[in-house]
Design a protein around this nucleic acid. Structure first.
Lengths: 344, 344
DNA sequence: TTGTAGGCGTTATCAT
DNA sequence: ATGATAACGCCTACAA
């Protein structure tokens, strides 16, 4: 064994340093840390003292390498820029923490190629399992997950048509229910602001929900006015302004989420339009923002916290070797506030 | 060399697998990946093909272990629950990305003990450097950072009194400037909602800024009505309600940040109080929320993006071996909106 | 330009 | 209960 020159490198104590200091083998130190029960009380105390004195912390990479797992679960969410995923992720993290595993977060900017890269990165970093949002991703991503046998859960969606394990809600049904209320109020000219649909199944489903409701009321779904934008308050505002320029001008704007809706409200205010007097606006998600803006947003309440919590539990179970089990469909409910009313 | 049984373990290709497939040594594969210039075009292509075919991704832990660095920088922020740190962190991440390093985020829940643990965790995970918020933390945390020689930058503060490298703004001066405007408008009864000050130097400094402004106007700083709460809209609302019960009732409530202020606005609305007619409310940070609420919040604009960007640049430089250099003091400016007006 | 081989810090399997 | 010691997957002198 090479003599460690402690004088030049006091900075990074290793297992070996601790062992030397405690007068035991590295194996004993490792056991004291990981399986304390297998070590006698006296030696364990000696080891722990050495650990404290040296300020030792195990090297994560080395540990992962040797143990072949990390107690880490990764999550890739489309964006951190707004609060859409914040609450669910928070609950997810809390539940993971209770299970003794830490969370690694990455964001894909709603781009499948970026997401694919993030998946690889997180797996390379040792993530034992992954939380993914929605079903839309590259075939390569799925191939990679299968090949590496990485346990994963798809959240924020529930699509009976796919066999993949998912924990979420039926975006289409939720939006359809909202749209039905809008139509029941007497609105006949509808507009919507949606996220780019090409790579976002939630956005597609929500839009389809509106169309289904229109059909149900004998309306031609093709009369639905559509504006497509990436999620941001500002984009919501711009899209709303464009919608107000169309003829016939919609009397209700169903936004793909609360962030868009908040932007729509701002723009309405700026244009001197009264909501809901001149035009109704609805959101989706029921994030905190929805209750803060004036008028309050009528929106779809999504059980974000429960979704995060249950996804964590399932992932923890998967890591423990349990079978995937059934997908979970959570219920959404309409959250009525002031932004939706009958047309003038 | 042991024969790898590929049939039972197709899941985790290693450097060796790639080497075998490409008919070269592991060293050549490693070089093709890390220093392509040192490998001939033809072999590199052969190697890359093998990499693709196998879906190989280098094992992060092993790489860190061997290379002794990770190209990863960690950030520990007090909370992810609201958007206070979102914009700065986003800019931080972008700048890091341009430098080819990835970001690892952890949150401390405003708790020094938790932060100390997170520091250890991130360093053990291989973070080459750390972004920390504010100066308040346990002596052990600082001791650990020194001992391990972990480069770090303290952001969100600029305190000339400390020699630590910081990139931020003068919280006290910023709040003092706001308070001076409030006082200049004629307000004489002030209230404030602050985060718990014991372990939060930003909160302490902001409060002290108000007191200094009061002294400057010949007011007794001890007449300042103080409510202490953890940051959340709801807590802001509650604290505001309590403030409105005090006598004399404050005519202006200076909130420790925009989140509190948004809560105050909600509660005012609920109580039938007009802002700024009956009572003025101010925020701090100028996050997106400040422009969305009605009335718009008069607040302190903090250059979050620039702060994040510059912190990233400095950290990158530190990792490259450059000297720490000087602390940076960024300027804040008052953002006038509608929530502040003279008292009735 | 390419290959050989030692070592990075842990864990885990055997012995003892 | 404890100690040797062989992996774990990669990087990097050093050699060729």
């Amino acid at each position: 064994m090479r003599a460690k020159d402690n004088s030049t490198d006091p900075a990074m104590p290793t297992l070996e340093d601790v062992a030397a200091r405690a007068g035991v083998s590295t194996a004993t130190v490792s056991r004291s840390l990981n399986t304390p029960a297998l070590v006698s009380d006296t030696t364990r105390e000696r080891v722990m003292a050495a650990v404290r004195e040296l300020g030792y912390a195990p090297n994560f990479g080395a540990r992962a390498l040797a143990a072949r797992r990390t107690n880490t679960i990764g999550a890739i969410i489309p964006t951190m820029e707004n609060a859409i995923f914040a609450r669910g992720l928070q609950a997810f993290q809390e539940a993971l923490g209770r299970g003794g595993v830490t969370l690694l977060v990455a964001s894909s900017s709603y781009d499948p190629a970026t997401e694919e890269e993030q998946i690889r990165t997180l797996v390379a970093r040792g993530a034992d399992a992954l939380l993914l949002i929605g079903h839309d991703r590259t075939p390569q991503s799925y191939a990679f997950l299968e090949k590496r046998r990485v346990p994963y859960v798809v959240a924020w969606v529930h699509d009976p048509a796919t066999p993949r394990l998912s924990i979420g809600f039926d975006n289409r049904a939720a939006m359809r229910a909202l749209a039905q209320e809008v139509l029941a109020l007497g609105h006949r000219h509808l507009g919507t602001i949606t996220a780019p649909r090409a790579t976002n199944d939630r956005a597609r489903e929500r839009l389809e929900g509106i169309r289904e409701a229109m059909r149900g009321h004998g309306l031609d779904p093709d009369t639905l006015l559509i504006e497509e934008e990436t999620y941001s308050i500002e984009n919501g505002a711009r899209a709303f302004a464009r919608l107000m320029d169309r003829v016939p001008r919609p009397t209700a704007v169903l936004c793909g989420n609360d962030v868009f809706a908040a932007g729509a409200l701002m723009m309405a205010h700026e244009m001197g339009l009264d909501v809901p007097g001149d035009v109704s606006v609805t959101g989706f998600d029921d994030i905190e923002l929805a209750g803060i803006v004036r008028p309050g947003l009528t929106t779809v309440h999504v059980p974000h916290r429960e979704m995060g919590r249950r996804a964590a539990q399932r992932l923890l179970a998967l890591c423990a070797g349990e079978a995937p089990g059934e997908s979970v469909r959570l219920d959404t409910v309409l959250q009525w506030r002031e932004s939706l009313a009958p047309p003038a």
